[in-house]
Simulated assay, not measured.
Amino acid sequence: MQENEGRMEVLRFAPSPNGWLHLGHACSALFAWETARALNGRFLLRIEDIDIGRCRPEYETAIYEDLAWLGLDWEQPVRRQSEHFADYEAALKRLRDMDLVYPCFATRKEIADAIAATGIPPRNWPADPDGAPLYPGLYKDISPAERSRLMWEGRSYAWRLDTARALAKAEEIAGAPLTFIEDGEGPNGETGRCAVRPALFGDVVIARKDVPTSYHLAVTVDDAIQGITLVTRGQDLFPATYIHRMLQVLLGLHEPRYCHHRLIRDTTGRRLSKSAGDMGLRELRAAGKTPADIRRMVGF
């Protein structure tokens, strides 16, 4: 692990309170905490609760309880994203002023219908690194008058990043192709200075009408505000760094280093997830497992 000369390293663990923590979360939390200790750095906890419809107070409380049970400690106060929408609104306004985002009024059904109308089977339509179909461009090139009309009608919309234009602008600002430093290893063995390829995501959603941010924008802004110097997270989030690095350049934010780590998988090779109902730390604790057992189970 490469140390950051001249200043203290700052790391974070940033779970979403939309379910119980499982072994995958324990691995990420322990990886960040142990790395911070090894580097004599700071360890922060951040609650990523912008998904107001799915996040619950009981899940947030459980995060604190589970991490403390594992023996982790963190600085106070804990940053909760839902309390900092103004920070994300300011970043979104800057992107809007640069003419790099546009309102998209397409529903999921409209997107699916537009893809079907091309005659290309959905399984053959290009997908982003998360598996979602690439946006087919609906509403991207409508006139300003039409956009204003739809907004005045109260139509729901998402702010999408014009990724091609944004990348060109970011490279103009940087004066070179964009890269980031990977201290760990990406899913395909990527390490060292890695190229940024945000086009893989197409015109990604950057905010919504009712919530002035998305995961990509909030994470980028928060990491800068909190002075994170080393971002540690699972290899599944390696491609997201393409978007985050581009946003850092566009918004004039500092560049952290990254360290993506292995994922915890079940016996079939599937990575653990909340949506799949994988056993949480609370259930494992109730079944008699100890913090030492959990550490062994995730390789610590």
Rank of each mutant, 00 (worst) to 15 (best):
1 M>T: 14
3 E>A: 09
6 G>E: 08
11 L>V: 02
12 R>V: 02
17 P>W: 03
27 C>V: 02
33 W>S: 14
36 A>H: 08
42 R>P: 01
44 L>M: 06
45 L>D: 03
59 Y>P: 04
61 T>E: 07
74 W>C: 00
80 R>Q: 01
83 E>Q: 15
83 E>F: 06
86 A>P: 03
90 A>N: 02
94 R>H: 04
101 V>A: 06
101 V>K: 07
101 V>F: 06
102 Y>K: 12
113 D>V: 09
115 I>C: 06
115 I>T: 08
116 A>F: 08
117 A>M: 11
122 P>W: 00
126 P>K: 09
126 P>E: 07
143 S>E: 07
145 A>I: 06
150 L>F: 01
160 R>T: 02
161 L>I: 10
162 D>Y: 13
167 L>D: 05
172 E>I: 00
173 I>V: 11
173 I>Y: 08
174 A>L: 02
177 P>H: 09
178 L>C: 06
180 F>N: 09
188 N>H: 13
189 G>I: 13
197 R>P: 02
201 F>E: 13
203 D>P: 00
217 L>K: 09
222 D>N: 10
223 D>N: 11
229 T>S: 15
231 V>H: 06
235 Q>G: 15
238 F>K: 13
252 G>V: 05
253 L>Y: 14
258 Y>C: 04
263 L>W: 00
266 D>R: 10
269 G>H: 01
271 R>G: 00
271 R>T: 08
279 M>E: 13
289 K>R: 14
294 I>E: 14
297 M>F: 12
300 F>V: 15
